[in-house]
């Protein structure tokens, strides 16, 4: 297992030493390859805190986190003795609103900033930048532009390209599609899915969008008030009980499928997860 959480709790320290428990007793393991995970939960449920533990930006206040053989505990001195920087290359974390981290004069310089920090030679970093800018759906002409003259969506893509160029083994994205139009959102999700499918990498996406969860995820984690309440496949998540208890919104496709069953008595052979599959399944029934 590449990342392993053992009974991890994390407490933010408050002003009067009254802590705020952001993570409570979390056990979790994530493989270095082949996983596509979505992490959902209400605002303030500890999603971002959990993500920051995964690339050693935060260390647990209780329990242990293992990341590629490095062990993090509440012992700050011991944590500091280990080299944490290599972990951050292997586990790439794209923050929420990554557009704020841009600071270089050109898009190119900003994309190669990460790789060069991790010792990638200049030539190779340039090549990666050219490749990644296309992967996130922009073309090479963007490389010479100033990152501050781009639109919000373009900035977001550029900053994601900057993380991709580090070639992390595990990619974690904190609400990568917020603020994008539906077209841009789908295109970007496709990019992440391709990274997972073609390169076999593990991708974890924090999201509020149940359609993303249902269509793409092979595994879904649900956080509620810092506790991990669900860790399994998406179809199991949307059972009536969970939906009611956790106040979940049903994915579009599932809503349609259930409506078809209830109103028209149409039972589909298998559970579709995307529009395409739904139309195909419906076609089989109608034909």
């Amino acid at each position: 297992m590449a990342i392993k959480f053992e009974r991890v709790s994390f407490q933010y320290r408050g002003v009067d030493d009254k802590g705020y428990l952001a993570l409570a007793d979390i056990n979790l393991s994530i493989a270095a390859q082949g996983e596509f995970i979505t992490l959902i939960g209400e605002t303030g449920s500890g999603k971002s805190t959990l993500a920051q533990h995964m690339n050693a930006l935060l260390a647990p206040t209780e329990g242990r986190v293992h990341i590629f053989g490095v062990k993090l505990t509440s012992d700050k001195k011991k944590n500091r003795k280990q080299r944490l920087n290599p972990i951050r290359q292997r586990v790439g974390l794209v923050f929420q609103f990554p557009e704020y981290q841009l600071f270089e004069e050109t898009v190119l310089k900003d994309i190669i900033f990460g790789p060069k920090n991790f010792g990638v030679p200049h030539e190779e970093a340039l090549e990666r930048a050219k490749k990644m800018i296309q992967i996130v759906g922009l073309d090479e002409s963007y490389l010479e532009r100033s990152p501050f003259n781009l639109s919000g969506g373009e900035k977001k893509r550029v900053s994601i390209a900057g993380i991709l160029a580090m070639e992390p083994e595990i990619l974690i994205l904190d609400e990568p599609t917020s603020g994008l139009d539906p077209m841009g959102r789908n295109a970007l999700l496709k990019v992440f899915y391709d990274i997972h499918e073609k390169l076999g990498k593990t991708v974890m996406i924090i999201t509020h969008d149940m359609d993303t969860v249902y269509e793409y995820a092979k595994r879904v984690l649900v956080l509620r008030e810092g506790a991990l309440v669900y860790d399994g496949e998406p179809p199991g998540l949307f059972s009536r009980k969970h939906v009611e208890d956790w106040n979940l919104e049903l994915p579009e496709i599932l809503r349609i499928q259930r409506a078809l069953e209830e109103r028209f008595g149409i039972r589909l052979e298998k559970n579709p997860t995307s529009r395409k599959e739904l139309i195909e399944a419906l076609g089989e029934v109608v034909m």
């Binding site: 920051q52 690339n55 930006l57 920087n85 951050r88 290359q89 790439g92 974390l93 923050f95 990554p98 704020y100 981290q101 900033f113 990460g114 920090n117 991790f118 900057g162 993380i163 580090m166």
Partner: peptide, 8 residues
């Protein structure tokens, strides 16, 4: 934190 995760 964001820059730290880019290797700073």
């Amino acid at each position: 934190l964001a820059q730290a995760s880019r290797g700073v």
